[in-house]
Amino acid sequence: MTIIVIVAAVILLAALAAGLLRGGRGRGRGRGLRRRFGPEYDLALARHEGDAKAAEKELTERLRRHGDVKIQPLTGESRERYVASWNGVQEEFVDAPARAVADAESLLAQLVRDRGYPADPYDEQVAALSVHHAYSVRGYRQVHAAAGRAREGRAATEELREAVVGARGLFDELIDERPRGRSHASDRHRTGVPWAGARGRHEATKGGTP
């Protein structure tokens, strides 16, 4: 009986140790995913109603599908063309906000494809971008949603402006090949005319001052 009790205790302790080890690995994997995906982790968690295991499974699957995307370089000429086009979108916003948002979405979608991300569908583009640009992919969702509402005549001018501003964060990263999560606030001059200038001219047309 003593031997049986000892053997049972050893088996129980081994099972407990294995469970603790698996739990530790799971927590470590969760922390790694949270660090990598940042706000995307929180979005996945909300989408799965707080189920961390389901959220982490989704994010792990995104990594499996898109972690090895081969990012294509842009030529200097191509980069300059994109920058000029984006500046044109900002100027266009002064007189035609809805059209400017549609053009911003189209331009960003083309840039996403040129950098080597999935050509379509939109959901796959977002999933791939979330792996490599987790802190700025929200801008792509924002401009996509705003453009859709603008086509239906349901978007206010301020919403459209915020969508273009949000999309610019991802645009800057894709153009400058900067690492994910880097701040863009101090680097707006890199894409030419600052947004504040375009907004200032918009206010001036309404009798305000830049």
Results as ranks from 00 to 15, higher is better:
A104Y: 03
A204V: 13
A127F: 00
T191E: 09
A167F: 02
R36C: 05
R154F: 04
Y135F: 14
V137H: 01
V69R: 11
E203G: 00
S136K: 08
G166P: 00
T205V: 11
Y41P: 02
A44W: 02
G24A: 13
S183W: 07
E58A: 14
E92H: 10
F37L: 06
R31T: 05
T2P: 07
E61G: 11
Q125N: 02
A198F: 03
L74Q: 09
T75Y: 02
G32L: 11
K70T: 14
F93M: 07
I11Y: 05
G166K: 02
W195K: 03
V101H: 05
F93G: 02
V126H: 08
I11W: 10
G116C: 06
A134S: 15
L45Y: 08
R31S: 11
L63D: 05
A46L: 14
Y82H: 12
G26L: 12
L20S: 11
K70Q: 14
R65H: 06
E124D: 12
L63F: 06
A96H: 11
R141D: 14
I175S: 00
A100P: 00
Y117L: 03
L174C: 08
H48I: 00
R64L: 10
R25L: 15
K57I: 10
R35M: 12
D103Q: 12
P97N: 13
P118Q: 03
R182M: 11
R29W: 06
R149Y: 07
G32W: 09
R180V: 09
Y82D: 01
A156V: 09
F37G: 04
G88R: 05
P121C: 08
D123K: 10
R35D: 10
R27L: 15
N87I: 07
G23Q: 13
G38K: 09
L74A: 08
G88K: 01
I71N: 05
R178S: 13
Y117G: 02
D120R: 14
E124Q: 10
A96K: 14
G169N: 09
V126K: 07
P73V: 08
W195Y: 09
H48G: 05
L21M: 13
R36W: 08
G181S: 08
E40T: 07
I71S: 11
T75V: 01
S85M: 06
E92R: 15
G153W: 01
R154S: 13
G26W: 12
G116M: 04
S78T: 15
A8Y: 08
R25E: 15
S78P: 00
R25I: 14
L59F: 04
A185R: 13
V89E: 03
R199D: 11
R141V: 08
L59R: 01
R149M: 12
I4E: 15
L21S: 15
G26I: 06
V89K: 01
Y140E: 02
R161Q: 14
E91N: 11
V164H: 01
L33S: 07
A150L: 09
E105D: 10
G30Y: 07
R81C: 00
G26Q: 13
G166E: 01
R27N: 10
D176L: 12
L45E: 08
G166Y: 01
V69P: 01
G153D: 07
F171Y: 09
Y82W: 12
R168N: 07
G32E: 13
D68Q: 09
A147N: 05
Y135C: 04
F171M: 12
H133Y: 15
Q90S: 06
D42H: 11
G38D: 11
K206P: 01
L174G: 04
